[in-house]
Design a protein around this nucleic acid. Structure first.
Lengths: 128, 128
DNA sequence: GTTGACTCCGTAGTAGCTACGGACTTTAGT
DNA sequence: ACTAAAGTCCGTAGCTACTACGGAGTCAAC
């Protein structure tokens, strides 16, 4: 399986695959005599895990942890749970931040009477 | 007014002030004979506008537009309104994205029985 | 005069990719 | 067998919005 096949199978950009290898998130695959990367099914699974985790907003470092944790299947998943809960908490914090921000933007927009910029409440709000 | 005074007056990091100047968001100020930057009150206002806009999530390019738009006080504020509404729409899109993400994370976490990693539903979800 | 705080500048680092360019290899078609 | 197109290789630079660093020069107080 070549790099473009792996990319297609996972929906991951080809250059991103190489990037993940470079930062050690994907193991360096075997190479053909010409130096082309040869991937196996296990690489597809690992990359799928990464792509899916990214879609859920996990950082590459969090994913690195998750991959390490996942490899020791006999241990408890307390730590996995911890990573997920921490991430959820971050997402929720970001949600609160955006909610406050959206409310302020709406206020700014709604109070504006849309005449000249000299009396624009949007600009006045932004000025402080 | 020196650069550290401007930074303190606006709550902006000192190095960020120089950065904003470098990218043309702040005009190059006058210099003392030794080459130190001398700022005026109008610089404080401009930087305050930038800092406040950043806090509301506007990108530096959006802020660049807003600053240009703001300078022509006699014109209507339709375009200002447009920038603000576009930004609000982006924030709302991000909110929807985060809401979906949080829901999925919660589902993952709640269904997990927390025994071994082999049966961890969090890891299974991430695997696809 | 000397110490300490301040300022200068250019450069590099952060996250997570994406794009580019020039060389090489493989594949399909004739 | 030959050629053209598509795929792959690698290193490097670009993106956003900063932040940090290092070495040099400057200013204020004691």
């Amino acid at each position: 399986m070549r790099i473009s096949d792996l990319a297609k199978a996972t929906g991951c950009h080809l250059e991103t695959v190489r990037y993940y290898e470079r930062i050690g998130l994907l193991p360096p695959p075997e190479r053909s005599t010409a130096g082309y990367r040869n991937y196996r099914d296990s690489d597809v699974e690992r990359l799928q895990f990464i792509v899916r985790s990214r879609a859920l907003g996990f950082s590459l470092e969090e994913i690195r942890s998750l991959l390490t944790l996942a490899s020791r299947t006999e241990l408890s998943c307390k730590q996995v749970d911890g990573v997920a809960r921490t991430h959820l908490a971050q997402v929720e914090a970001k949600q609160r931040e955006l909610a406050a921000l959206a409310a302020e933007l709406r206020g700014m927009i709604e109070t504006c009477h849309h005449d000249t910029r000299a009396t624009c409440t949007i600009l006045q709000s932004l000025a402080g």
